[in-house]
């Protein structure tokens, strides 16, 4: 039978796990941000990267509709938010 952790005890243990999670998240974020490069072939091979490259090359977003599923979504119309605000 699993014993219940007494209420209010092991707070420092729980906080340590939370601190470890934050540290690990920060470390992973920095590692990814430092090594990632949108022009890198590995990143460009992902749909998001391909979408960015097509946008940069001036390819119309409509062309992406013809791509297989998962190849990226056409850009959202930006007018919705601005018209809501006016």
């Amino acid at each position: 039978m699993t014993k219940r952790a007494p209420r209010g005890r092991y707070e420092a243990t729980r906080l340590s796990v939370a601190a470890l999670a934050i540290a690990a998240l920060a470390a992973a974020w920095v590692a990814i941000a430092a090594t990632a490069d949108p022009a890198d072939p590995a990143i460009a091979a992902s749909p998001f990267g391909r979408q960015a490259l097509l946008s940069a090359a001036g390819t119309p977003a409509v062309a992406l509709d013809a791509a297989p599923p998962g190849a990226g979504r056409p850009e959202r119309p930006k007018t919705t938010r601005t018209s809501r605000g006016s």
Partner: peptide, 26 residues
């Protein structure tokens, strides 16, 4: 926990800290 966090942070942060401000919008 503290040592693990510090070691991870130091190992990863030290060589790449100068690249942090520019995440290329991602």
């Amino acid at each position: 926990s503290l040592v693990a966090g510090l070691v991870l942070g130091t190992i990863v942060l030290a060589p790449v800290a100068h690249r942090l401000p520019s995440a290329d919008g991602h």
